[in-house]
Design a protein around this nucleic acid. Structure first.
Lengths: 224, 224
DNA sequence: CGACAGCTTATTGTATACAAATGCCATTCG
DNA sequence: CGAATGGCATTTGTATACAATAAGCTGTCG
């Protein structure tokens, strides 16, 4: 997409994630156009994309609303994510290259370093975590799977939590990544899939717990 | 969506499915607008939807092309479909109501009747087949799952085949549906999921075989 | 007091004109 | 002769005006 349309998309999306646009509230194209400093045309484009990603829903008469997520919806998304990521891991185990494995090891080492230092660097952890997972998806070599996974991975951020994951959880992620790497080394797809399923489900429970006991606002990605 | 936008969507989609728009060929918004008898605005809307559904892809400089599917891509879609439908079946087993079960039995009886008569009525079979599966999805009660499944279910039609499935395959579908119903009766989610996986994978192999030996043009939905 | 009809206003859908970007081709220079 | 560059043609992106539709309100009637 081009400039204005992308700006609108990013802007609206961030307003939803930050809570600036309240869950369930109606959103009017013209109001968003003013907020984004563009005309309605690119706003409409952006809304269609956000609708496809289920950040926005439309009622029967085409009015748009910010999607409102219950914890059940989130668990649903995580369940699908676990299934899809496990599937990706299984496919990846059969196809991954030496180079890709090396890159995964690199990112896993980096994210360990990010939380081992005296001042844990959570954004750095999340960044390398994301890259680690993206290589699995790359190795899985399925565009369709990738696009589906994108949908469920981006979603949890809507229920935001201020509390960063405790270090214990981040370390577990690191160790689970290690186990995943060993499974890949052995080309054991079932093992990889099982580790991945457990990895995502643990992340969900950590997330749900953090969310239920903490209500402050902040932003964070899933540390899976 | 409203009138013009919907018409454009349906029209373009059917042109892709019928082969009127060749796989891999570039498509220009203005040309489509003329073909559909609307302006570019609703055509652009339609293209965005088709792009999300992977019927259309866009290159790095925003030009649109009809997606071209290899048999590998199709197997990929079927693999995902099998996984998602199995998941749906598992969820449905835990939630399905008496009424929903009754409706499934009705549709299964109807589709049996469609192929048992002296003149097999394949469109009728496909119709009840579709409804049968839609009830499972309804019982699974996950919007996200439903929207994902829609994507992979609609896709196989792009590689069209003239040969209707042979009656043997259609009868097998009927019997597999029966087994699914028993699994639901027993609230056995794992059983239901296993039957469903086998059901979809058999459908894929029947489809692949029909496609590899038959090249004529026609239209048909998946008889899964 | 409630509900319904008709009008008014708000919101989205569509067409069109114009701007920006991209690709293509020819020409030129090394 | 080949590669690079410039300009022209094609295609997509954006803004805006207007049309269609849905929602809300008000006044009237049962």
């Amino acid at each position: 997409m081009s400039r204005a349309s992308d700006r609108a998309y990013d802007h609206i999306r961030s307003m939803i994630l930050s809570g600036e646009l309240q869950s369930g509230s109606q959103i009017r194209e013209e109001a968003l156009a003013e907020l984004c400093g563009v005309s309605r045309t690119p706003v409409r484009d952006a809304l269609r994309r956000l609708e496809a990603e289920m950040f926005v829903r439309r009622n029967e008469s085409q009015r748009s609303f910010v999607a409102d997520w219950s914890l059940d919806d989130l668990e649903d998304a995580f369940q699908l994510r676990a299934m899809l990521e496990a599937h990706a891991a299984k496919r990846a185990a059969a196809r991954i290259s030496r180079d890709q494995l090396a890159r995964m090891r690199h990112h896993n080492a980096q994210l360990k370093q990010a939380i081992d230092s005296s001042r844990p660097d959570v954004p750095k952890f999340l960044d390398h975590n994301r890259l680690f997972h993206s290589i699995i998806l790359e190795a899985a070599a399925s565009d369709r799977l990738a696009s589906m996974l994108l949908q469920v991975t981006e979603q949890p951020v809507v229920l935001r939590t201020a509390r960063q994951y405790d270090l214990e959880n981040l370390r577990r992620s690191h160790h689970e990544h290690d186990e995943l790497l060993i499974a890949f080394d052995n080309r054991d797809g079932d093992w990889a899939a099982a580790v991945m399923t457990a990895h995502i489900r643990r992340a969900f429970h950590a997330y749900a717990e953090a969310h239920s006991t903490d209500t402050e606002v902040g932003k964070s990605n899933m540390a899976a």
